[in-house]
Amino acid sequence: MAEAGRLAGTLAGPEWILALRQTAARGRRGRAWVTPDGNFSATLVMMPREAPGVVALRSFVASLALFDALVAVTGRAEGLSLKWPNDVLLNGGKLAGILLESLGPRRGTTHLAIGVGVNLAAAPGADEVEPGALRPVSLVSETGAAVAPEALLEALAAAYARHEAAFVTYGFGPVREAWLARAARLGETVAARTGRSEVTGTFETVDDTGNLVLKTAKTRQAIPAADVFF
């Protein structure tokens, strides 16, 4: 992501950046993150033209693309699911995360960086994630599939290009439907936590602006940003 910020102003079009090693990895909300050798860390830098709310929906585009890429490199979809807003699960554990950042104006254009991290070869220990978070898992430990970062990038770049074209052409509707078809815990009780509050309810849907919709005992609540716990 840091390299994306450095290069953004020099790029003429979308660009993927693959890091084989990171010394300052980070996750959502600036959390520190460990990236062992053999895992996947890549960022797509692009220059979207839409309003910020539409640009943010690319987290769903990216997670669909990553789902398809993982199927392509392993030959299996069993056990894979998508967790709102931007994680990929395997056999109920966290396999991958996606992070979107606006890089701000570069030569008059705001760039978007879509960071993708996948535990291909190794996963953090349970003591390295916050209490109540899903257990981290790796692709090789859960499936036996040893996939090189370069091979996953090839599959991911192709899948993302396909989903991006559909998103630009047809809008969020088809992306939303495809995402919901792969959603983890749809129809079940989940908790959505922000820094100041927690809402528990039935995961009913994702609305047409990407909000998580929970049905509580008293109302239906649309949540734009939170960490979800099962």
Rank of each mutant, 00 (worst) to 15 (best):
E164K: 08
A157N: 01
R49W: 07
P85L: 12
T189C: 02
R182G: 10
A113C: 07
A222D: 01
E78I: 05
L90R: 05
T74S: 15
E198F: 00
G27D: 03
P52G: 04
D208G: 14
D207E: 11
A4V: 09
A77G: 13
W33C: 02
W16V: 00
M1T: 10
G125H: 06
T109A: 13
F203G: 10
V34S: 14
L89A: 01
N119W: 03
E130S: 09
H163W: 12
V71H: 08
N211S: 15
A77Q: 15
A225V: 10
F167Q: 03
R135E: 13
G132S: 11
T143R: 15
Q22F: 11
R21Y: 00
A191Q: 12
N211C: 15
E154F: 10
T169I: 00
L112S: 02
K218I: 05
T143Q: 09
A225Y: 03
P224Q: 07
P48V: 06
P124N: 04
A19M: 00
G92A: 06
A32V: 09
V190P: 01
G53Q: 13
H163M: 02
V206R: 12
T43Y: 12
E164I: 09
F203C: 10
A56F: 08
S138F: 04
A155W: 07
G195M: 06
V88N: 05
A226V: 09
K215M: 12
R107E: 06
A178S: 12
S81A: 15
M1I: 09
L100N: 04
F229M: 05
P174N: 13
E142W: 00
A122M: 02
A181F: 00
N119R: 10
G30R: 09
E164Y: 13
D87Y: 05
S197I: 00
A72R: 10
A25V: 03
A24C: 02
A225L: 10
A19W: 00
L152T: 09
L212I: 11
L120I: 02
P48E: 06
A178M: 02
V45E: 03
P36Q: 03
P36N: 03
G125D: 04
F230W: 13
A2C: 04
V54C: 05
A183H: 07
A12Y: 02
T202S: 11
L20I: 00
E164P: 09
M47K: 12
G27E: 05
G75Y: 12
V71G: 08
L156H: 10
R107N: 12
L89T: 01
A72Y: 05
A148Y: 03
V199A: 11
M46G: 10
W33R: 00
I223C: 08
N39V: 04
L153T: 13
V118E: 08
A157F: 01
K94H: 01
L99Q: 04
V61D: 11
